[in-house]
Design a binder for these strands. Structure first.
Lengths: 263, 263
DNA sequence: ATTTAGTGGTTCTTAAATAGAACCGTTGTT
DNA sequence: AACAACGGTTCTATTTAAGAACCACTAAAT
């Protein structure tokens, strides 16, 4: 069905995170609970192709330049960004806040494109950041329009990680219902402290949710009432995006349930 | 020695370029001259982990969001950029032109960081672009300080690709000598038409070349004499970079000769 | 209508690659 | 001087992948 060697190798890459970007060989092997010679072969193969870089003094391994290269190729390829850019820039100008486009990626949301207000905190460095769907307006707005089984799964993920948003099952699902009813969501300080955002879902031509569009800003300025005033602008942009999104394909990975226990 | 399955899988990824970012399964298999079921297994394994995205309508494969994610992790990790940033920004302000930091990556140079002059053409989108060392001031400046065997190899690469810079062996190597003698290089329109640049090499603590630092701008403004006037500024920045580079490790991949025929 | 050639995806058995224990030589500690 | 830990290497039993043949499907050509 799939290539086990490749699969395992890619799992190894997942351990190179922002929190732990550098690994010594045996340290990583212990963490993975596999023989260090296997890890060695994987890392050195990656290294030969530039996906992994090894500091020859400290012997530590880290991510290689290949990812920079491929990320540029992606940008070139995604004409989406060209079409998104003017719409988002306009919304930034009108709303005087930063605008964030979050894309659905399995059980996660990924900050795909950000246009920054000049009077704002720096968000742009978050591009490419992936976090679970239970957290933040931009993410929960997407979750609200996914199948209930996925919502349950995501809720469980949050529960297991101990995240406060998933402390009460009833209120979590009630809030998702609110998003579906009013078509948007405002939230404060969920993803970043002192940052608030208001989000709307983006659908493809088959009315499946694929992303969300958000206005984000510092909580002291972007209060709930300030955000509410900007909702009309946000909806205008949403429709503009949806108009062209029907013609383009976003690299969206829809979540798949491995096993459905109920009938 | 190395994992053949992984190696082959990574070779498949290399075919997703800016020029040809989307492939149909059998089309790619033909190009690779391997059985399509092998390519299928590779691509679908990559897809399950987000490295490859398949458009479910057109069935075409392209690069996945994983590369965006890893590229962000790299940025977080590379404190280099934090240290490089102020030096490069200052040089941009002083020189009133864009500044480019090019890193050595095997037989190639890769645009690693760019600070843009406000009065300038857009370079930033080139970050992550990798091109052979025979082309352009930023690249040839690095090449000049690499072993002569590597220079010969690179010259051959250029020859085979028919690039004009490598039409005459003697003059190619003479120019490299000039770079070593004067410590910098000016060139016009080599990488981008109507763009000129002046470059200096960056060495690590063991005096091995690892990168180059360049001032780049439109040829009508950054003439050879204009560039010459900025060389002092460029050298100042070069030394600032080298002062901290001794303490940090750049993810530089040094070229390795597979076989040296001559003694 | 029917053949033909193409597509993405799947299956099976032979043939090839990998796993992982045991092993280097080196380095730093006790 | 003994010990432990390191990155890296080697060898063969065991696992995995290769790739021809095969689907079901689509589009074009007859």
């Amino acid at each position: 069905m799939s290539l086990k060697t490749l699969e395992k190798s890619l799992q190894v890459l997942e351990f190179f995170t922002s929190e732990k970007p550098k690994w010594k060989l045996r340290e990583l092997a212990r963490e993975l609970e596999i023989n260090h010679s296997i890890v060695y072969r994987i890392l050195s193969t990656f290294e030969r192709s530039g996906y992994i870089y090894q500091n020859k003094d400290s012997k530590e391994y880290e991510l290689g330049l290949k990812f920079l290269e491929f990320s540029r190729i992606m940008d070139d390829n995604l004409k989406i960004t060209e079409l998104l850019e003017p719409i988002m820039s306009e919304l930034t100008n009108q709303s005087e806040e930063s605008v964030v486009f979050t894309i659905l990626d399995d059980f996660y949301g990924l900050y795909f494109k950000i246009t920054e207000s000049h009077q704002n905190v720096r968000f742009a460095e978050s591009i490419g950041r992936r976090s679970p769907l239970y957290i933040g307006a931009s993410h929960r707005t997407i979750l609200a329009f996914l199948p209930v089984e996925v919502q349950e799964e995501v809720y469980q993920m949050g529960k297991e990680s101990g995240h406060p948003a998933t402390s009460d099952h009833q209120s979590f699902f009630d809030k998702l219902q609110v998003i579906r009813d009013q078509g948007w969501l405002f939230s404060s300080g969920e993803t970043f402290p002192d940052v608030s955002a208001v989000s709307v879902p983006i659908f493809d031509s088959q009315h499946r949710v694929i992303a969300s569009l958000s206005i984000a800003g510092p909580s002291y300025r972007l209060t709930e009432s300030a955000a509410t005033e900007k909702i009309d602008l946000l909806f205008e942009s949403k429709y503009k995006v949806q108009r062209f999104s029907s013609k383009l394909s976003f690299p969206v990975k829809r979540p798949e349930m491995l096993a459905t226990e109920s009938h």
